[in-house]
Amino acid sequence: MDLSALRVEEVQNVINAMQKILECPICLELIKEPVSTKCDHIFCKFCMLKLLNQKKGPSQCPLCKNDITKRSLQESTRFSQLVEELLKIICAFQLDTGLEYANSYNFAKKENNSPEHLKDEVSIIQSMGYRNRAKRLLQSEPENPSLQETSLSVQLSNLGTVRTLRTKQRIQPQKTSVYIELGSDSSEDTVNKATYCSVGDQELLQITPQGTRDEISLDSAKKAACEFSETDVTNTEHHQPSNNDLNTTEKRAAERHPEKYQGSSVSNLHVEPCGTNTHASSLQHENSSLLLTKDRMNVEKAEFCNKSKQPGLARSQHNRWAGSKETCNDRRTPSTEKKVDLNADPLCERKEWNKQKLPCSENPRDTEDVPWITLNSSIQKVNEWFSRSDELLGSDDSHDGESESNAKVADVLDVLNEVDEYSGSSEKIDLLASDPHEALICKSERVHSKSVESNIEDKIFGKTYRKKASLPNLSHVTENLIIGAFVTEPQIIQERPLTNKLKRKRRPTSGL
């Protein structure tokens, strides 16, 4: 017993010596996670971090007073192994002897410093981030199933929210409404489509400006004509009531908005009720001829604005009016007729031209339509002016008669200019590109209106002035400009410049 007691005391002394060697000089306990400095002193990692955080910048070693920084600290694995072995020896000594260790306080702390507990403390002390800490805590505590279930439920809930957000973003663009038309193969669909197009076009005519009305009406008319041609002859009974509906809707729209509806009346003529396609083609032919005449008058307007600064050229074209007008009339009417003589009366030419125009518009179905009313009214106005011209010709002399006839021709041009508003800008460009020769010939008609105004002003003063002067240069210039014009009389060319000069002198006297 005595020997055993001596041996136990010796073992205890050895353990105490080893414990003092492996103590931390700051906390005076076994080193936890030993860290060595540049001066080869060993301290606990937790104690050194606490010391360095007390001051900004480098701190001093507690043993040798040298500078220490966080970067200079290094882990010493050898001392950590020695500490672990010492703890194992102490545990074995207690089991063999059955005696508690003399320094129970220190031993209890040593026992608490088992490797499992050290790992837990290291995970908390090290600044490795929240995710690494959570992982280490889960690994160190596998015995708690409640914690695992809560963490898994949190992760699953987070994943569910992310997935639901993604699915919502994908589903939202798919919620856009999609309209699908289910059509049938019955023959009544074509008639319904035609009526739908006509009503939609009328609404567009009321909303859209004048520049786009003609294009819309032309497209709708083409669509309706194609649909009529596709149907068989057996379905004509269905077409006639639908066309009557079209007429009623167009008349109502014309009564409500007459000014807006006139812009599309000329282009919509071939959508009118037709028994066969031949009647629609004839109407299209007549409309094309009318559009040609209207576009020519538009060309004359532009030329008149350009040549208004040259009064000499405008005056020299006075007698070329009849010849150029004959050529335009021959090209406007498709019928083959002989040219009228140069010395014939211009009023007779106008009456013949009106007689040619009237039969074209005397179809029984055309008179029933609303768009032809505008053309009939313009023709009636022309006839009224010609009836007035006959009365004026009986009273005035030959020279005054010529000037009045020219004035009436200008009035006719004004009437025809009203129809110019109905034609589109695209048709003007096509006419100029296809028929430049006709445009040059028809330019002379509009330029002549300037000389007509001068004659009217001469009649106000009650006299006409003449001068025997020749202007050969002007006649040559005008002959080169206009290709299809005829030779003019030299006496009238000489008379016109004198009248304008005298007018300039006598205007201030009349004002006084």
Results as ranks from 00 to 15, higher is better:
I171N: 00
G183C: 02
N158W: 11
S151W: 12
L156R: 06
N112A: 13
R71P: 15
L22K: 01
D189V: 09
F93A: 02
S127K: 06
R78Y: 15
K110M: 11
S177T: 04
I90G: 05
I125D: 11
Q60V: 08
L165I: 12
D40L: 10
A17V: 06
S177D: 08
Y179E: 11
R131G: 10
K56C: 02
D40P: 11
I124N: 15
E188W: 12
E143N: 14
K135Y: 05
V11F: 14
S146T: 10
L63G: 12
S151G: 09
G263V: 13
R133C: 09
N66F: 03
P142C: 14
V154R: 05
C27L: 01
F107D: 03
V35S: 02
N132H: 15
H41A: 02
V162T: 03
E141R: 06
D185S: 10
E75D: 15
S186Y: 14
V178G: 10
Q60R: 10
A5C: 11
I124P: 11
S104T: 09
G160F: 08
V14G: 04
R7E: 05
T190R: 12
E111H: 06
L28Q: 14
L82F: 02
P173L: 11
C91L: 15
Y105A: 10
T167R: 06
L152A: 05
R136L: 14
I15C: 03
F107I: 14
D40A: 12
I89S: 05
R131I: 11
Q94L: 04
K20Q: 11
V154P: 10
S140I: 03
P25A: 11
Q54H: 01
S184Q: 12
A108G: 09
Q74C: 12
Q60W: 14
E188N: 11
F79H: 15
I68W: 03
L152N: 13
E141F: 02
K175H: 04
S186Q: 06
T167G: 15
M128N: 08
K110S: 07
L99K: 03
I21V: 11
Q81N: 14
K88C: 08
D120A: 06
K65E: 03
R7F: 01
Q60D: 07
P25Q: 10
K20Y: 14
R170S: 08
